[in-house]
Design a protein around this nucleic acid. Structure first.
Lengths: 220, 220
DNA sequence: ACCTGAACACCGTTCAAGT
DNA sequence: ACCTGAACACCGTTCAAGT
């Protein structure tokens, strides 16, 4: 059965399983492929540049094949966002831990945050840009987003326990910090900051210093 | 001449000059009307809900009439953004001056900033949302945006001269503050903050306190 | 100078039909 | 169970033509 040969092939070269074999009927894992192709298209041509037709064509599949796996286009976007939150969270945790779970790690986390946003700008926009108003009900997506936020809260609590950060409500404190890095990220993405090389990194570093002064325990 | 009667009428009731008189050929001031109608549509149905067809219909005019006044849709959006920056700047200046051009006025300005963004959320998104990548060349728009930013810089310099704010580069300092209010505004607009009544205002007030600690002169 | 109406090349989505 | 192809109702934009 050719079916089995195909399955073996995609097992051995997972990166090549994107296009459907012309003669074959089933794709293999179209759902997975759709998400990856959508992410790639978004990265290259922006969110508005994502068309179901182009995605289908890139995968060698009809433009309506997608509807066997997602209710509509926004559901595909939600899946992309979910994936985004996952890798985003991992990047934040890594920075925090490599920096020793202290002030240094916290600064590294801010940097990692904005770096992710800038290097995956369209992806980031899908995650936070309000495209998902309607499908905000997606519980899996909510869970991933909450988990990413929790990384920040945990980092703050750890520093509070070490006596390095003032004893405010951690979630309010977290949202304040979040707003800063999110703000810098969005301004950078939208081209509202000087295009000068290294400007964004400098701003982040400067911000980290001001944040530290703003949130450290009062030493009277 | 009916033309003159019509002109007199729009002089006396400027709010009613929106729809074209069916029999008449010229609209009166279609350019102005297009911008206002576009802003209204965006406010009600979001940026994606803005269609040239609907705008034309609301004004009793063909859907292609717009092309006599703007090169394309994005130019219309740029005009809307320009208007937005103007009223935005006025709101900021007012808050700053009513608060006495000091720390109190500065906090009031932060509040005014986010209030504008939240109450004119779609308008704000057009101004900052990266819809204007292509037509970023529009010099009038650039000028308005720069003027709005300058309000913030001036307020910081005034406080530096009064010895209330540390002597960092005002423009970097300004961009740091800007990122914070922009970040809170975007999170609020995109529904990423708790929907709890008054939450955003509380967060802004909290942020104002943390910002103050972060930027005030070191009192050793 | 300003506006219209038909036409064009797109888009997401539906649905009966194929394998 | 999974995919196709024609069809439908949208969209921005062009262009020759009308006033």
């Amino acid at each position: 059965m050719p079916e089995i040969r195909w399955a073996a092939m995609i097992g051995s070269m997972p990166a090549r399983r994107r296009r459907k074999q012309p003669g074959r009927y089933h794709h293999g894992d179209l759902r997975r492929a759709l998400i990856e192709e959508a992410a790639r298209t978004i990265q290259r041509h922006g969110v508005d540049g994502l068309t179901l037709r182009a995605v289908g064509q890139a995968l060698g599949v009809s433009r309506t094949a997608l509807y066997r796996h997602f209710p509509d286009k926004s559901a595909l976007l939600a899946a992309v966002a979910r994936e985004g939150f996952r890798t985003f969270r991992l990047a934040l945790v890594e920075a925090w831990e490599r920096g020793g779970r202290g002030p240094k790690g916290f600064d590294a986390m801010s940097l990692a945050y904005v770096r992710f946003a800038v290097t995956h700008s369209s992806h980031y926009r899908v995650m936070f840009g309000g495209f998902l108003d309607a499908c905000a009900a997606d519980p899996e997506l909510q869970k991933e987003a909450a988990a990413a936020f929790q990384v920040l809260v945990d980092a703050l609590v750890a520093q509070q326990e070490a006596g390095l950060v003032r004893d405010d409500d951690p979630s309010q404190l977290a949202r304040f910090i979040w707003a800063i890095v999110h703000g810098i990220a969005m301004l950078a993405i939208d081209g509202q900051l000087p295009r000068q090389d290294g400007y964004v990194e400098d701003l982040i570093r400067y911000a980290a210093g001001r944040i530290r002064s703003g949130i450290e325990t009062d030493k009277a």
